[in-house]
């Protein structure tokens, strides 16, 4: 299917609407046919729901997929967690008839049926595989003179048996999309390490989750970058709001700006930091904001 529906999930619409706005602006500018997905719910969050009950996890994920099947559109997510739930559930239900029958028995209670006619896409792999880095470059109007610490996030690339995105120790496809905006993806220690939020750890074991985050932030600061870029609002929330919590808990003074890839791409496509909701982050780094406003206005 060439038509997509935008699956919002929870954190994008309910905490970081700037990512929603940025994604919609970018997709429109790139002439990608994407619609809303009215009535969609939590994906459901893989770290918790998949840890609680498989039947419920599959039922809720499949309801979201069926909403898109009805629109005859593939789902597009901008979140690694939503991708983890929806793509994995879609694969399991397509390949296991017994599981599908079981899930359809639950769905029947609400008059739905999973048919397996839609695919689940993540904006990063979609842009890389379908749209293409070179074409993306053609659409950019501003070269971003920024040094970026890229955080892939875990569920975009793992489990690798289901992702088809190559190896997981040192992937490069996302770095290439960063560089298509003119920004430089800077290597740093433990780049592929988890942000510490997933698996219900941020909610269930907040202190331990922040320990992991602090390590990651220390590595990123050492690399001397302008900002962190991610493709997952849960990692985004951990890096952004978590950064303030780390400062408080460990007596640190981190102030590293955090952007979702849609926001970085939005800047390169000519949208202003304000339109992209970058100023709405918890981390307020005035120097960085001044820099991107200057870049955005063509002053540097």
């Amino acid at each position: 299917m060439e038509k997509l529906s935008l699956f919002l999930g929870c954190i994008v619409p309910n905490r970081y609407p700037g990512i929603e706005k940025a994604t919609k602006l970018c997709l429109q500018k790139l002439d990608i046919d994407v619609s809303d997905l009215p009535g969609a719910s939590c994906c459901p969050a893989p770290g918790v729901f998949k840890s609680f009950d498989k039947a419920t996890w599959l039922a809720l994920a499949s309801r979201n997929i069926v909403l898109s099947e009805k629109l005859e559109r593939d789902l597009l997510t901008v979140c690694n967690g939503c991708y983890g739930s929806l793509a994995d559930a879609n694969i399991e239900l397509k390949k296991d008839p017994e599981l599908r029958e079981c899930t359809n028995r639950c769905l029947k209670e609400i008059g739905m049926e999973f048919k397996g006619t839609a695919e689940v896409r993540h904006i990063i792999e979609f842009l890389y595989k379908e749209f293409g880095r070179e074409k993306l470059k053609e659409y950019t109007t501003i070269q971003l003179d920024l040094k970026v610490a890229l955080h892939y996030g875990c569920h975009l690339i793992k489990p690798s048996r289901d992702r088809n995105l190559g190896e997981t120790e040192a992937p490069v496809f996302f770095d290439e999309l960063i560089e298509a905006t003119g920004a430089k993806s800077v290597d740093y220690t433990d780049k592929m390490m988890c942000c510490g939020a997933g698996g219900g750890v941020r909610s269930g074991h907040a202190a331990e989750s922040l320990e992991m985050l602090e390590h990651k932030l220390a590595c990123i600061r050492q690399a001397g970058v302008d900002c962190i870029v991610n493709a997952c609002p849960f990692c985004h929330l951990q890096f952004d709001r978590g950064q303030l919590a780390v400062n408080e808990k460990f007596g640190k003074d981190y102030s590293i700006p955090v952007l979702h890839y849609s926001q970085l791409l939005g800047l390169a496509l000519g949208f202003s930091p304000y339109e992209l909701g970058i100023e709405q982050n918890a981390v307020q780094n005035i120097e960085f904001l001044a820099k991107i406003y200057e870049i955005s206005a063509g002053l540097r």
Binding site: G47, C154, H155, C194, V201, H205
Partner: peptide, 19 residues
């Protein structure tokens, strides 16, 4: 059991391919 972030690094690196 609830300290795992489900990052899948162990699964990817297991030499016996245990998920």
């Amino acid at each position: 059991l609830w300290l795992c972030t489900t990052c899948y690094t162990c699964q990817e690196r297991c030499p016996r391919d245990i998920p």
